[in-house]
């Protein structure tokens, strides 16, 4: 069979107008169904004819999933809220500016108007071998094309590899983990709430998935508790160009100080591992320390313990070290 990487193959499209209908469709079609949010991740897959689901459930008509509302303990963001609506939301901007900033760091203005927060955290990896249809582990094969010495792996992982060396590319995910957000997931009539930190799945658990979501599951919303509202939360992303690019690495660090020392901290990096990585060793190292250059330096050094760079991504070690350092040392970016 010859290969063509163009034209979306035939599929059955459902456009439910309620979450109940969407869940019913997902239950009915199980692993044959593909959940379509903003389409930015999806359409590449379809147009390249690499992923070929039989059924697509388009959530675009479910207005309730786009809501961003204040709750008794923070805010709840519908999974279908566009990135721009997150960025522009007054509550998000005032209470969680780092979340708005990380959403603004994603993609391009056009994509931020179409792409959703749910899609941004749930998106698949951008490993260029896997995305191009190479039959790697993640695609159900028995090889990783990105890890051999001859492979091109400048943008791949330095942490957490397990056969697959692809990274999670989300910009909002590390911030949500740092903010101790929770993911509200429904499946049929049941609902479960998953800590953002536990939402992402590495290849050692399931090499073909990036999150805990299984067929039939629907990410409904993201709850951001008020615990870190108006706190010092630093986000920074490093990328090759500003027009539209995924992170070479990013960092989100939430710090609470008391009496001149760091009382509580959550330090999360992404773009360096198959999942956003909470650096608990760094957190332990800085708690009780003053937030200063020395502590920041120490945090950077601790952050890179255990890294295993590939042929072309040794620079990520220093990049991650420096991002962690400045996330503690510097004032949050606007």
């Amino acid at each position: 069979m010859a290969v063509i990487r163009d034209v979306i193959p035939q599929l059955e499209l459902f456009q439910p107008s309620s979450t109940d209908d969407a869940l019913a469709l997902l239950a009915e079609h199980g692993s044959d169904a593909w959940v379509y949010a903003g389409g930015l991740d999806t359409l590449d897959w379809f147009k390249d004819r690499v992923k070929r689901p039989r059924v697509v459930v388009d959530l675009g008509g479910i207005d309730s999933m786009r809501e961003i509302r204040s709750t008794s303990d923070g805010i709840e963001i519908g999974a279908m809220a566009t990135l721009i609506s997150v960025i522009d939301n007054p509550e998000v901007r005032s209470q969680f500016p780092a979340l708005a900033y990380s959403a603004k760091s994603a993609a391009s203005p056009q994509i931020r108007h179409q792409g959703t927060i749910g899609g941004n955290i749930g998106q698949d990896t951008r490993c260029w071998y896997y995305r191009d249809g190479w039959t790697c582990y993640r695609a159900g094969g028995n090889i990783c094309y990105a890890s051999p010495p001859t492979a091109m792996n400048r943008e791949h992982c330095i942490l957490g590899a397990s056969r697959c060396v692809a990274v999670n590319p989300s910009d909002t995910a590390p911030t949500l983990v740092a903010l101790e957000a929770e993911m509200v997931v429904r499946r049929g009539n049941s609902e479960r709430v998953v800590a953002a930190e536990d939402f992402f799945v590495g290849p050692e658990i399931d090499i073909e998935r990036m999150t805990v979501l299984e067929p039939g599951d629907l990410l409904m919303s993201i709850r951001v508790p008020s615990k870190w509202a108006n706190s010092r939360v630093y986000f920074e992303k490093v990328r090759d160009r500003d027009s539209w690019d995924f992170p070479l690495a990013n960092v989100a660090t939430a710090i609470r100080e008391n009496g001149g020392t760091i009382e509580e901290a959550r330090v999360v990096v992404n773009g360096v591992a198959p999942t956003p990585v909470r650096l608990t060793a760094v957190e332990s190292a800085i708690i009780g320390q003053p937030r200063n250059e020395q502590t920041a330096e120490q945090a950077g050094n601790v952050s890179i313990q255990g890294v295993a760079p590939l042929t072309h991504n040794g620079y990520k070690v220093n990049l991650m070290k420096n991002l962690v350092k400045r996330s503690i040392r510097d004032e949050p970016l606007a």
Binding site: W128, D132, M152, R241, D242, S243, D245, F246
Partner: peptide
């Protein structure tokens, strides 16, 4: 930013899309 990247073992391009061969845009 802009370049091609090829896998040397297989001789195939891995940077086929705008976002990974990276021509500059107006935000650059």
């Amino acid at each position: 930013s802009q370049k091609w990247v090829y896998d040397r073992r297989w001789g195939l391009a891995v940077s086929k899309r705008f976002y990974n061969n990276r021509p500059p845009g107006i935000l650059d």
